[in-house]
């Protein structure tokens, strides 16, 4: 199905996203543990979709999203977020992210979101 880049500073979270998506036919083509790495990997791998954590060292998910969208306006970025981060998520959407998934991840919701965003 889709080629996905997972950006999150917690290996645990990356594993979770990977397993949910991997179990449902998506291919995880890369992982990054901060925004800077995320940008590099995006440029290098050109994935169909990025899952992007918000709070990360080096470059946070919002700045990374802005940067990716700047060079690739059609990038499909889904923010990974926690409860209580509405403002941040909204900022990310304004920056060009296409969707968001909320921790703790529920597989059906994650998959639905990914499907919607990929369909756009």
């Amino acid at each position: 199905m889709a080629k996905v880049l997972v950006v999150d500073d917690a290996a645990f979270m990356r594993m979770m996203v990977k397993n949910i998506l991997g179990a449902n036919g998506h291919e995880i083509v890369g992982e990054a543990e901060n925004g800077v790495q995320g940008l590099e990997k995006y440029a290098q791998l050109k994935p169909d979709l990025v899952t992007m954590d918000i709070v990360m060292p080096e470059l946070d998910g919002i700045e990374a999203t802005k940067e990716i969208i700047r060079s690739h306006p059609d990038a499909r970025i889904v923010m990974c977020t926690a409860v209580g981060q509405q403002a941040k998520v909204l900022e990310a959407m304004k920056a060009g992210a296409k969707g968001y998934i909320i921790k703790p991840f529920q597989a059906p919701k994650v998959l639905e979101e990914i499907k919607k965003v990929l369909g756009s």
Binding site: A11, A32, E33, N34, V36, Q37, E40, K41, E58, L59, E63, K66, E67, I69, R70, P73, A95, G96
Partner: peptide
């Protein structure tokens, strides 16, 4: 919109870049 985004992003560009750490657990 695109122009706005560009100017916003410009600020964040100079942040430090570090070589990617490749590791597995």
């Amino acid at each position: 919109k695109k122009k706005d985004l560009k100017s916003e992003v410009a600020k964040s560009k100079d942040k430090g870049k570090e070589a990617a750490v490749k590791s597995v657990r």
